[in-house]
Lab assay of single mutants.
Amino acid sequence: MDETGKELVLALYDYQEKSPREVTMKKGDILTLLNSTNKDSWKVEVKITVNGKTYERQGFVPAAYVKKL
């Protein structure tokens, strides 16, 4: 869990989004878990840094590609 009590997951593999509802992640990324009720895909939040500014983006990733921490 992070400092706000949200559950975290670790990306086990790289994943490139295939639709606007998904998010891209790299192996080793730590993501905030938002919903894990679907056995196939979990909703997560990723933090992306562009030019020194951090943005948050929500979307789905394959459940088999992440592990709860």
Rank of each mutant, 00 (worst) to 15 (best):
D2P: 13
D2R: 12
T4H: 14
G5I: 13
G5N: 12
G5T: 13
K6Y: 14
E7C: 15
E7S: 11
L8M: 10
V9K: 00
L10S: 03
A11V: 10
A11G: 02
A11R: 03
L12S: 01
L12H: 01
Y13T: 08
D14Q: 03
D14N: 07
D14F: 06
Q16N: 13
E17M: 12
K18P: 04
K18I: 06
K18L: 08
P20R: 08
P20I: 09
R21H: 14
R21C: 15
R21D: 15
E22L: 04
V23S: 02
V23L: 11
V23K: 01
V23M: 07
T24R: 06
M25D: 00
M25F: 13
M25T: 02
K26W: 08
K26I: 07
K27F: 04
G28V: 02
G28K: 02
G28S: 02
G28F: 04
D29F: 08
D29A: 06
I30H: 02
L31Q: 01
L31T: 01
L31W: 03
T32E: 06
T32Q: 08
T32W: 12
T32C: 10
T32G: 05
L33V: 05
L34E: 01
L34R: 02
N35A: 08
N35F: 06
N35C: 13
N35H: 06
T37L: 09
T37M: 10
N38T: 05
K39S: 11
K39N: 10
D40G: 08
D40F: 14
S41A: 11
K43T: 06
K43E: 14
V44N: 00
V44D: 00
V44F: 03
E45Y: 08
E45R: 11
E45G: 13
V46D: 00
V46F: 08
I48G: 04
I48D: 04
I48R: 08
I48E: 07
V50P: 00
V50I: 14
G52P: 00
G52T: 03
G52M: 04
G52E: 05
T54G: 04
T54L: 09
Y55R: 06
Y55D: 03
Y55G: 03
Y55L: 09
E56C: 15
E56P: 12
R57S: 04
R57M: 07
G59P: 00
G59W: 05
F60S: 03
F60Q: 02
F60M: 08
F60V: 04
V61W: 02
P62D: 04
P62K: 06
A63L: 02
A64V: 09
A64L: 09
A64K: 13
Y65G: 05
Y65N: 05
Y65W: 06
Y65D: 02
V66M: 06
V66F: 07
K67D: 05
K67A: 10
K67C: 15
K67P: 02
K68E: 04
L69P: 01
L69A: 03
L69F: 09
L69H: 03
